[in-house]
């Protein structure tokens, strides 16, 4: 019998701790598939964040390092600079990347670090129990914005792709979602492009996933996917963000 579907080699054969309806699992799989397809598993070093994906090192079958909160791009920089032949990717959530790690991600991008960043934006702090994130939408209720995020008080959500795409070192930036088979296929292509950007030595690459958190959003998994399409993708448009050409 011909095997038409199996577990990627870069994915470990273990159950995850992610909640039902959360899309971390799909995103993990896409990364693992791309690593397999590019044949770089034995050169790959992943960096997990502080947040829901903190245990990602248990789920991938490649070398992995756990970073402190927000510092994954700095840790990745250290690994890549010390070992340029390694394929280095970070896996970070919105609190990790866009709040406490805002400085590190901006400078890694501006330096054009040859690393790949997988940015999972679900507009909320999942692991700590549903607090407001830097990407929480205006009006969105969280445990620390119980009346809904008021931009007058809590500021505006950060559009990471738009922000980073203004930096000359950012060679490939894209925003994707996994709310439909078509979107999953597009997302996979983006992840592959991001890793290829690194392998070709072109510079910094980042793929932002609009992801779900049914648990902390208080929705069913299906409602959550619809909320990504109807609400998040409006504030955070999907697509590739063209690199700003180098001046001078």
């Amino acid at each position: 019998m011909q095997k038409v579907f199996g577990r990627p080699e870069a994915l470990a054969d273990v159950p995850t701790h992610y909640c039902p309806g959360c899309t971390h699992g799909i995103i993990h799989r896409l990364i693992a598939e791309v690593i397999d397809e590019l044949g770089v598993r034995e050169r790959t070093v992943g960096i997990s964040p502080v947040g829901c994906a903190v245990l990602a090192y248990d789920y991938f079958n490649c070398d992995f390092v756990e970073a402190s909160h927000g510092r994954a791009p700095a840790v990745a920089t250290g690994i890549k600079r010390a070992s340029p032949n390694s394929v280095v990717f970070t896996y970070q959530g919105d609190g990790d990347l866009a709040s406490i790690g805002a400085g590190e991600i901006v400078h890694a991008a501006s330096r054009g670090e040859k690393i790949t960043v997988i940015f999972v934006n679900n507009a909320i702090y999942g692991m700590t129990g549903g607090q407001m994130a830097p990407t929480t939408l205006p009006g969105q209720k969280t445990t620390t914005s119980p009346r809904g995020r008021d931009p007058e008080v809590a500021g505006h959500p950060i559009r990471v792709c738009e922000l980073l795409s203004s930096l000359s070192g950012a060679a490939y930036i894209a925003r994707v979602s996994v709310t439909s088979p078509a979107n999953v296929a597009k997302a996979r292509r983006a992840v592959k492009k991001a890793f290829e950007t690194q392998l070709e030595g072109k510079g910094f690459s980042l793929v932002e996933f609009l992801s779900t958190c049914p648990t902390n959003w208080g929705m069913t998994p299906v409602e959550a996917l619809k909320w990504v399409d109807d609400k998040m993708a409006v504030y955070y448009p999907l697509g590739e963000y063209t690199r700003v050409p180098e001046v001078g």
């Binding site: 840790v75 920089t77 250290g78 690994i79």
Partner: peptide, 10 residues
């Protein structure tokens, strides 16, 4: 944290 990363790489 870059030191941390480079140390990880040996």
């Amino acid at each position: 944290n870059m030191v941390y990363g480079a140390a990880c790489a040996g």
